[in-house]
């Protein structure tokens, strides 16, 4: 009856898996430090995060998993779904302990659930590619605020770097208070101590915007309104594909922009 406590990071979680093998532990539950509540009569053991051990588990997993599923453990982990640790733990054990691949055994509730969680996280990743909106600032940096449900910004960097290779950009996660800055060569992680933008909707202070920025936001909103066919109004579909929580970042949905 062991409760294993870890620091909440993916690396920490993989270290737990490593220790379970090494110390032959069979955990009842794996909990983040921050979530753990004392349980009467339960044994608890804190497992420190260890990059080397985590690496070993990750590498071994990569060897066993089909290419398509190589990112599955990380993506599913990022869903922060309650109980994700035990689900992943059981899955990883099965992957290691079975000689054949069990990754498509969708009759098993862990496998199916993990697959679904992975899809959910991927969807949020895709939404970033869809709904990131840059504002051009007067020093030539394109700035985009985001607030994704999961911590998926790192998954999108490759895309943005390839696409916007000739412009400096900064994409900033307001909720997690960190972002990535591309300086025309490399993409670096940054945390801004002083912010020249609203921490609520990410709007850059008007005096720091490039002079034509507002003009293009207006043009875009104008376009958005003109391309709509009134006779076919269907707000429900609109909301289904473009969740309302993104609207505050979209100039086309902003009531503040008028022409």
């Amino acid at each position: 009856m062991a409760y294993l406590i870890y620091d909440g990071s993916f690396e920490g979680f993989l270290s737990v898996v490593f220790q379970c093998y090494q110390q032959k532990l069979s955990p009842t539950n794996i909990c983040k430090e921050s979530d753990f509540q004392e349980v009467l009569f339960a044994q608890k053991q804190t497992i420190p995060s260890n990059p080397k051990q985590a690496q070993r588990v990750w590498k071994a997993l990569q060897k066993k998993l089909h290419r398509r599923n190589q990112e599955l453990p990380l993506r599913a982990f990022l869903s922060e779904h309650p109980g994700i640790e035990m689900m992943l733990y059981r899955f990883i054990r099965r992957v290691f302990d079975t000689s054949f691949s069990i990754e498509t055994d969708y009759g098993d509730s862990d496998v199916l659930q993990l697959k679904k969680l992975e899809r959910k996280v991927l969807k949020e990743t895709a939404r970033l590619l869809q709904f990131v909106r840059f504002q051009e600032t007067s020093d030539g940096i394109y700035f985009a605020p985001i607030e994704p449900e999961f911590d998926v910004l790192p998954f999108t960097l490759h895309h943005f770097k390839d696409r916007f290779a000739d412009q400096q950009w900064l994409i900033y996660d307001l909720r997690r208070d960190y972002g990535f800055y591309y300086n025309l060569k490399t993409v670096d992680e940054v945390t801004l101590s002083e912010k020249a933008f609203s921490t609520i909707d990410g709007k850059v202070n008007t005096n720091l915007l490039e002079e034509k920025e507002v003009h293009y936001q207006k043009l875009w909103k104008n376009y958005f309104d003109s391309i709509n066919i009134k006779e076919r109004k269907n707000l429900k579909v609109q909301r289904q594909y473009m969740p309302q929580r993104y609207w505050k970042f979209l100039p086309e949905k902003s009531p503040r922009i008028k022409d």
Binding site: Q130, R163, A165
Partner: peptide
């Protein structure tokens, strides 16, 4: 040094009030 790429599946960047993809 150029700008832009194309993604095989296409990306919808917005949805109009009639529910169509932009």
């Amino acid at each position: 040094g150029g700008i832009g790429n194309a993604v095989a599946a296409g990306i919808c960047h917005s949805f109009t009030d009639d529910g169509r993809c932009i």
